[in-house]
């Protein structure tokens, strides 16, 4: 008897293979190794994880990270919504100008931004000198080495990421729905709050999750603008790995962030396709 022919594997998989092998060998595999370290170093067991309940400093770092991430996400999404709304309602030429400004900001190096904020926000920075010259303040405001500076830098970095998913969801709204609401007698404000905003919910949720995910592991801006005073998880991990060589603690924190990110990504995939989020950059 001849066995029924199995469906041949699609030849397309051969083209997928090089990338898949590279990501598997250099990325996924080593990340599992980090997870393994979190339960084996310095000794097998869950010791690194139970330290979360006994070590005050770890709790404080996680709390700082969460607090900064939440505040930054809320502000970025509100500002992003405002920009996306203006873009959707602008004439095409203006919209293209706005989009180029947004994308330029999207691609400017995080190091260049950080350097600029150092110059702007320092005790003798442009902002403080300007405010003093105008007589608005008498002593310099401490922007640096505290959460205020970190938040300014992070929001500045995150707003473009918030705009793109919201923009995508606004562009998919059928304009007639808004017209229908107005012609049925709703005011502009009512139409916005009861019709428009709910229609963009998926975009807002996707934007918030995306911004939050990127914030969770943010290293450069908190490390430089926080100046050691605002210790967030990513900086703590780098100190553990590069200075004190405590791989176990670092791996445990990395595992926490990783699982958090994956859970949020799963949640996000239920609101919006990942490709759409980044595809917005091509609009």
């Amino acid at each position: 008897m001849i066995a029924p022919a199995r469906p041949a594997l699609n030849p397309g998989w051969i083209l997928v293979l090089p990338f898949l092998l590279l990501v598997g060998a250099l990325f996924i595999g080593p990340i599992f190794n980090v997870l393994w370290i979190s339960v084996t170093d310095p000794e097998p067991g869950l010791g690194n994880y139970t330290a979360l309940f006994t070590s005050g400093s770890l709790v404080k770092i996680l709390w700082t990270t969460l607090r900064v991430c939440v505040i930054c996400t809320v502000i970025s999404v509100i500002l992003g919504y405002c920009i996306a709304y203006a873009m959707v309602h602008a004439a095409e030429a203006k919209r293209n100008k706005m989009l180029s400004l947004l994308l330029v900001s999207f691609w400017i190096s995080v190091l260049v931004r950080t350097f600029s904020w150092l110059m702007l926000l320092g005790r003798n920075g442009v902002v403080n000198n300007g405010l003093e010259a105008l007589g608005i303040i008498s002593a310099p405001i401490g922007f640096m080495r505290n959460e205020l500076g970190v938040l300014i830098g992070m929001v500045h970095y995150m707003v473009p990421y918030a705009v793109l998913p919201i923009l995508a969801s606004m562009q998919s709204i059928d304009g007639r729905v808004v017209q229908a609401s107005r012609s049925l007698g709703a005011t502009g404000a009512q139409t916005f709050w009861r019709v428009y905003l709910p229609l963009t919910r998926a975009g807002v949720v996707a934007a918030a999750l995306l911004v939050f995910i990127i914030n969770l592991g943010f290293y450069v801006i908190p490390a430089v603008l926080g100046g050691g005073k605002v210790l967030m998880v990513a900086e703590y991990i780098s100190v553990q790995v590069l200075v004190t060589l405590q791989w176990g603690t670092a791996a445990m924190l990395a595992a926490l962030i990783l699982f958090g990110v994956l859970a949020l990504l799963f949640l996000m995939s239920r609101f919006m396709k990942l490709g759409t989020v980044f595809g917005g950059a091509k609009a």
């Binding site: 990338f19 898949l20 990501v23 250099l26 990325f27 996924i28 595999g29 080593p30 990340i31 190794n33 980090v34 370290i37 995910i213 990127i214 969770l216 592991g217 943010f218 290293y219 990513a234 991990i237 780098s238 790995v241 670092a250 791996a251 990395a254 962030i257 990783l258 990110v261 990504l265 995939s269 990942l274 980044f278």
Partner: peptide, 22 residues
């Protein structure tokens, strides 16, 4: 495809640890 997009969304600090150990 979703797996292959992971390097974009997993925080670079975790990628850095993974590469370093490897």
């Amino acid at each position: 495809r979703a797996v292959l997009l992971l390097p974009l969304v997993i925080p670079p600090i975790i990628a850095a640890m993974a590469f370093y150990r490897l």
